[in-house]
Write a protein that binds this DNA or RNA. Structure first.
Length: 314
DNA sequence: AATTTCACG
DNA sequence: ACGTACGTGAAATTA
């Protein structure tokens, strides 16, 4: 029996969560506080991730817990430098799906974003053939999984596993998705075709990811490369956008001689140690720079939060 | 040294 | 018949 509801299974999972958080974060991070600065300093790799993302090592500050209550207690430990400062977090909302909308030019998806319609609700409406106001929370949750699948390179098997439904049902849902967003289907096919021809996929700024298995006779290798051909331009263009924004924000902060500092980047998020008196100005400028870093055929949205610690800044 | 597990986007 | 969601890093376990 694979029932997570059984007491022992729940206890094991609970124990694993606890041990993970203790061993990886609670026992380690305090030992990494610099004597000189009183802070934890990470290093960013700029040439490790195949898509052009940064990665963070020694320690990795891009995987600080947030999803569980106990994990959130750890995130709360990240605080500003002093009483005159607050943590400010600015993140892109649905950046990868927005890029998918812009690249594919899918009218329904673009309209949803440009009119402020919740994208997962929009997807649920199309896939389950109900009105936008008839989408239930369960339908929206499933649509969210589907949308992630689209970005990652979907298969009926993969979707069936994650939704815990029969494979045939998953295949049906994928069909409905492509019927509802036909330009997305065309875009995905185009990504793969281009990669077959060139031997690489590229981002909006021209960063290439070479895909040596794109024409492989080994089906598993080839299909993996095909998913990369779809995902790399999206994930990589999001990385391009955030990096452009970071450069411009850094320049602006120098020009303005701000006391605030940009202290961390987490794929679609920037974190600031922000002086209380600068927050109004800083947030407006950061928001503007992020939204306009790379103009696309879709409106970019950001979420900005401020708080006494990193958790509260969300 | 390679694999597994699990933390994040 | 096969094997299956994208990108990472760290700690523990296996070999």
């Amino acid at each position: 029996m694979l029932r997570v509801e059984h007491e022992i299974a729940r206890k094991i999972l609970d124990y694993r969560e606890l041990i993970k958080l203790k061993n990886t974060y609670v026992d380690v991070l305090p030992t990494l506080i610099s004597k000189r600065t009183g802070r934890i300093h990470t290093s960013f790799n700029q040439a490790v991730a195949a898509t052009g993302r940064l990665s963070s090592v020694n320690p990795n500050l891009q995987n600080i817990p947030i999803r569980t209550p106990r994990g959130q207690e750890i995130r709360k430990a990240f605080v500003p430098r002093g009483p005159e400062f607050l943590i400010m977090s600015a993140d892109y909302s649905q950046i990868e799906l927005r890029i998918m909308a812009a690249f594919s030019g899918d009218k329904t998806m673009l309209d949803a974003f440009n009119n402020g319609v919740d994208i997962h609700t929009q997807t649920a409406s199309k896939v389950f053939h109900v009105g936008l106001d008839e989408v239930t929370s369960d339908m929206r949750r499933k649509a969210k999984t589907i949308n992630f699948g689209i970005i990652y390179g979907i298969s009926s098997f993969g979707l069936s596993q994650r939704l815990k439904i029969p494979r045939k049902e998953a295949a049906q849902i994928i069909e409905e998705y492509f019927a509802g967003f036909p330009a997305v289907k065309d875009y995905i096919d185009q990504c793969i075709e281009k990669a077959r021809g060139f031997g690489y996929a590229e981002t909006i700024l021209g960063r290439r990811r070479y895909l040596r298995d794109i024409n492989s006779r080994n089906q598993t290798d080839r299909m993996f490369a095909e998913r990369n051909a779809v995902n790399a331009p999206i994930q990589g263009s999001a990385a391009d956008m955030l990096k452009i924004a970071m450069i411009r924000i850094h320049e602006f902060m120098l020009q303005e001689r701000l006391k605030s500092k940009m202290i961390l980047t987490v794929h679609d998020e920037l974190v600031f140690d922000a002086h209380r008196d600068e927050i109004e100005f800083l947030s407006v400028r950061v928001d503007d720079i992020m939204k306009n870093a790379i103009p696309m055929a879709v409106r970019m949205e950001t979420g900005i939060g401020v708080g006494e610690n990193w958790l509260l800044a969300h």
